[in-house]
Amino acid sequence: MKILIRYIKLYLHFVSNCITRELLFRTHLILSFCARLMLFGLYIMMYDVIYKNAASIGSLNYDQALLYLSIFFLVDTIGFTFFIKNFSTFPEYISEGKLDIVLTKPVDSQFFVSVRYFSLTSLFSMLPPLGLFIRQVDRLHIALDPYHVFLFGLFLVCTLIVYYAIWFITNLILFWVNRIDALHEFFVTIWRFMQFPPDIFQNVIRLFFLFIVPILLTIEVPMQALTGSTIKISHIFLLVGASVLSLLISRILWKMGLRRYQSTG
């Protein structure tokens, strides 16, 4: 318990340090927010274009599709808030040898490299998807009873764990291959596949996203929990299992990577 409190306090210091720094560049903050807002708007427009042309994506109607999109972007912005700055710093840690300083600190190294930086801009970017989410919940007349909200929250936590762990694992490639530009985009590119409902993926790619990079159910299951739709037990097992397993693998690979780390970069 003492350790947990120590880590929470440390994390709050990290956050306050990053917020102070980001607030120095207010114009940057506003422009970054506008850029994310535009990206979000672009996808809404794309959904609009498809549905206005009397077509649909998967089995979802327009309102359900927008709810799906809002949950996708919520997870995405939460992930960006906590991890983007950290994972884009990985080349500095591993390839340039800055991990030395981290390893000498009296703190878990995986914790430090994962959460040292916090993005206030991304936190603000959560507002538009949150707004759309609330609107869609209202439009779809979703009754927010505590049971379904709890399940939604629980599965969302599993999703965020999968999101973090797989993104973290993909960055660890740097321990083995010292030089790949913009490696943090590796996961983001895979993750973007989930911005559209998963029933568009069939056969091999479906299996790939179910078992190899298990992100197929990360948005669908929380959404089903929220809307009160029937969730397959196997899907729950797969999502919860993926979160536990991917976190475990991330830890093992981090330890393996540290053994390979040569300090000088």
Binding site: F25, H28, L29, L31, C34, A35, M45
Partner: peptide, 18 residues
């Protein structure tokens, strides 16, 4: 004229994308 221009790149990318 500005200290931090990174956000302008992001904005340009989204405008161009659309």
């Amino acid at each position: 004229f500005m200290i931090e221009t990174h956000s302008l790149n992001g904005l340009k990318e989204q405008v161009t994308g659309l």
